[in-house]
Design a protein around this nucleic acid. Structure first.
Length: 200
DNA sequence: TGCCCGATTAACT
DNA sequence: GTTAATCGGGCAA
């Protein structure tokens, strides 16, 4: 094989998500998320474990969080503050009700569509935040419960290694001290910088 | 039923 | 730094 030829990125299957959410989350940093061909590299996310008071699933199943209690490898989309949509990937064996919140992408595909939907000039603001990235990709509750290994979703594993950094989660009050926010070290596309005290 | 709050964002001062 | 927008979940009554 020529040295210039790169291996085709591996598609993420349900098996990838059938592990502890605390293993899946850092492994997703650097992976590529596309929705109808629009998206980019995942540079920031947060893990929500079913034993975690900050998780939507903590108090048991409801119509809103039902997808979290289903099998891994599905999209859980919820309304935030009555305004925004937020995208999660369901992880762990069925019923574990754990998920990762996708918080920021480095835009790589469909830039024109994302700029049109977001209405901002600065590409760093296209997908820097859970609500912003859903707006940029056109994700709404209409896509709640869709499989992640079928269109309109496409997920590709990262190629090579990623310098993953961990810190406390953002915007929560319960279990706020758990270091379950993960990011790509040095990325310009984070929703907020990681403090210097964060651990690689 | 009514009230409070939230895994957010943009537009303010 | 502060605040409005906006609505479903959770809980008290």
């Amino acid at each position: 094989m020529p040295a210039t030829m790169r291996a085709m990125p591996r598609r993420l299957t349900r098996a990838f998500f059938s592990r502890s959410v605390l293993e899946v989350a850092p492994d997703l940093i650097g992976a590529t998320l596309l929705f109808n061909g629009v998206g980019g590299r995942i540079v920031e996310l947060e893990a929500y474990h079913h034993t975690d008071p900050a998780a939507h699933s903590y108090r048991g199943p409801t119509p809103r969080n039902a997808v979290m209690f289903g099998p891994p490898g599905y999209a859980y989309v919820y309304r935030s503050y009555g305004i925004h949509w937020c995208l999660n990937f369901v992880c762990e064996p069925k019923g574990s009700a754990s998920a990762v919140l996708i918080r920021a992408l480095e835009p790589t595909a469909g830039l024109a569509a994302m700029r049109r939907r977001r209405g901002v000039a600065d590409d760093r603001l296209l997908c820097a935040g859970p609500g912003r990235l859903c707006e940029a990709l056109g994700i709404t509750n209409a896509h709640n419960g869709l499989r992640l290994d079928q269109k309109p979703f496409e997920l590709f594993d990262r190629t090579g290694t990623a310098d993953v950094i961990a810190g406390v989660r953002i915007g929560i009050t319960k279990a706020a001290d758990l270091p379950w926010r993960y990011g790509l070290k040095g990325s310009r596309f984070l929703s907020k910088p990681f403090p210097r005290s964060s651990r690689s």
